[in-house]
Design a binder for these strands. Structure first.
Length: 570
RNA sequence: GCGGAUAUAGUGAAGUGGUUAUCACCUGAGGUUUCCAACCUCAUAUCGUGGGUUCAACUCCCGCUAUCCGCACCA
């Protein structure tokens, strides 16, 4: 490859100059990790989002949600983000290595994870732990490295702590009851959301690759773990893909083959991998620069049973752009535990079961005064006991973690006789999560090429017509004799056609204007010339291949919006 | 967050302690031109930002911000 760094520099220059992607707030000095999609990029982003949405909605049992980005503290505490996303760091005064402050106290403190920044700092000062790298005992002050943006919801004393969401998923989990009702209590179903996520990265790098505010698109697909998933893989049977298993085996195998070989562990994960492949190729990712990499046991969250990343090769090497994870019931269970709201689906058994058993429950008159506000928890814990205990007093662990002493006078036996028709269970979730900015970056990276044209470097963005931000450039050969007027009229017609967008360009030579259009990936140029004035036809030029055909003006917008124009060139 | 380098027009670069800061491409206006970056004329910058040194700072010094490269962090 010839000077990849130079290519990257040139590409970044093109994107800035033409208003595709540029640093945000640049006139104020800019902010690391924040980028604008400019006059051309804005519509590009929108179209990629749109194609993504349509791709998943066509599954037929998927709906779109839109949830707030401002998220109250308890939601992200329940989901585990508060713990996961904030670390306390300190730096060695000698060798400058940065470490998690709690890891320094692992030896000397029973639970360093629970300490606040101030406590960590005084503990470190008191115990003088050695730097594992250089052995020094000087440490800088402890700083919090929360990766979430904090905010206060509301003002004054009533203000509640909150965050800007680090992912869109939580809103879809908290909406489970509404989704369940919408789908008339029948699994499987899914919810998608396209929107912004925020992570206060310590050092954003590599342009669009690591951002502080980013566009993401996620699908949460809820399934019954006891029902064998039914997916039609016929479309992908003879399509070998690049797979790297968690044992680092590099395979070239079709998705259904990898599934039956047990490399991919779950059919729904496999199905979404195949769908993801189709989406990425449809928006212009080069299939040869795309691979699936399975997470190793060690890098997978404990609750996940299988997880695959899609990595795309571009100017920054292989970059993770999509994660497809089987999350088990982790998320719904976490929110259920935190809120007490049932986030379950009903499974009807084929045969009703008659239950006739004895359980232990509280004797309200005695246990009520004894346990007061915990009486309900005591009741739940007692009724959940598999075996009826015979010895009292009994040490009973409540769901809150608290242990209480139960005397025999607090309890009574109760006979249960009922018919049970089914059970409530926690659905499992398979989640494909897409980093839209990273995907857009790679679409551009793969689409942009410099070719030699008459001895000059010539820059072309070979964007797929479905996502090209500008569908048509309307060009009068000259801006005189009414050609300019005619072209302006056509431009308005195209812009008012649903789904189409065009621009008018009358300045410079015709070749220069074709070049300008090619550089931002306009697939079609329509040129009005002298003949157009006479017979109402114009030439349509194809970006890739640079061929031209002549066609009646009044059919052009229909031809392009119907996606039929490409056929004229074959 | 640490260390190093860098910051001049839309893009890419040159240059200087002292009147109007160069160059190429791009962009705009006018001319010319019957389809692929042609040509001619003209136009477009308070030299990242705040402070200091100086009679005078784009130029020297310091802080900040951003970018790039290592390290660390993150996925």
């Amino acid at each position: 490859m010839a000077e990849p760094d130079l290519r990257l520099e040139k590409l970044v220059g093109v994107l800035r100059r033409r208003g595709v992607i540029l640093p945000a707030f640049e006139i104020h000095g800019g902010v690391a990790g924040l980028y604008d999609f400019g006059p051309v990029g804005g519509r590009l982003r929108n179209r990629v989002n749109q194609v993504w949405l349509e791709h998943w909605l066509k599954l037929g049992n998927v709906v779109e949600l839109s949830c707030p980005t401002i998220t109250p503290y308890p939601v992200l505490s329940a989901s585990g983000h508060v713990g996961e996303f904030s670390d306390f760091l300190t730096t060695c005064g000698q060798c400058q290595v940065s470490l998690r402050a709690d890891s320094l106290l692992q030896e000397s403190h029973s639970n360093p994870d629970s300490l606040t920044a101030v406590e960590l700092e005084s503990e470190i000062a008191a115990r003088n732990p050695q730097c594992p790298d250089c052995g020094a005992t000087e440490w800088t002050s402890v700083t919090s490295q929360s990766l979430m943006f904090n905010t206060i919801i509301g003002g004054g004393k009533s203000g509640r702590e909150g965050f800007l969401r680090p992912e869109t998923a939580q809103g879809m989990f908290t909406n489970f009851p509404s989704l369940y009702r919408h789908f008339r209590q029948r699994l499987p179903f899914g919810a998608v959301q396209v929107g912004k996520g925020y992570r206060n990265e310590i050092s954003p790098r590599q342009g669009m690759i690591r951002l502080r505010e980013f566009n993401m698109a996620e699908l949460e697909y809820f399934i019954d773990p006891e029902v064998e998933p039914m997916h039609d893989f016929s479309q992908w049977e003879n399509l070998p893909l690049n797979l790297i298993s968690n044992r680092d085996d590099e395979l070239s195998q079709s998705i259904p083959d990898a599934l039956s070989a047990g490399v991919i562990r779950h059919a729904t994960v496999a199905y979404f991998m195949a769908q993801t492949y189709d989406f990425l190729v449809a928006v212009g990712i080069d299939a040869n620069r795309l691979r699936f990499r399975q997470h190793k046991e060690s890098e997978m969250a404990h609750y996940a049973s299988d997880c695959w990343d899609v990595e795309i090769l571009g100017s920054y090497g292989w970059v993770e752009c999509v994660g497809i994870a089987h999350r088990g019931c982790f998320d719904l269970e976490a929110h259920e535990l935190a809120t007490g709201h049932r986030l379950r689906a009903w499974r009807q058994w084929p045969q009703a079961v008659e239950v006739d058993k004895e359980i232990l429950t509280i004797d309200g008159a005695k246990a009520g005064p004894a346990f007061r506000d915990r009486a309900g928890l005591v009741k739940d814990a007692l009724e959940a006991l598999e075996q009826i205990p015979t010895e009292f007093p009994l040490e009973l662990t409540l769901s809150s973690g608290e242990v209480v002493t139960v005397e025999s006078e607090h309890v009574k036996r109760q006979r249960i006789q009922q018919t049970v028709n089914g059970e409530w269970f926690l659905p499992h979730v398979v989640e494909p999560a897409f980093g839209i900015d990273r995907i857009i970056w790679h679409i551009i990276d793969h689409a942009w090429c410099e070719i030699e044209k008459e001895g000059q470097d010539y820059s072309v963005m070979r964007l797929a017509p479905d996502i090209a931000p500008i569908d048509v450039a309307v060009l009068p050969l000259f801006e005189k004799d009414g050609m300019g007027k005619m072209a302006e009229g056509l431009n308005r017609t195209i812009c008012s056609t649903k789904g189409l967008f065009s621009y008018y360009d009358g300045s410079g030579s015709i070749g220069r204007r074709y070049a300008r259009a090619d550089e931002v990936g306009v697939p079609w140029c329509v040129t009005i010339d002298h003949q157009s004035l006479k017979d109402g036809t114009a030439t349509i030029r194809q970006r890739d291949g640079q061929q031209q055909i002549r066609h009646p003006l009044d059919e052009i917008s229909e031809l392009i919006s119907g996606g039929m124009v490409g056929k004229l060139f074959s």
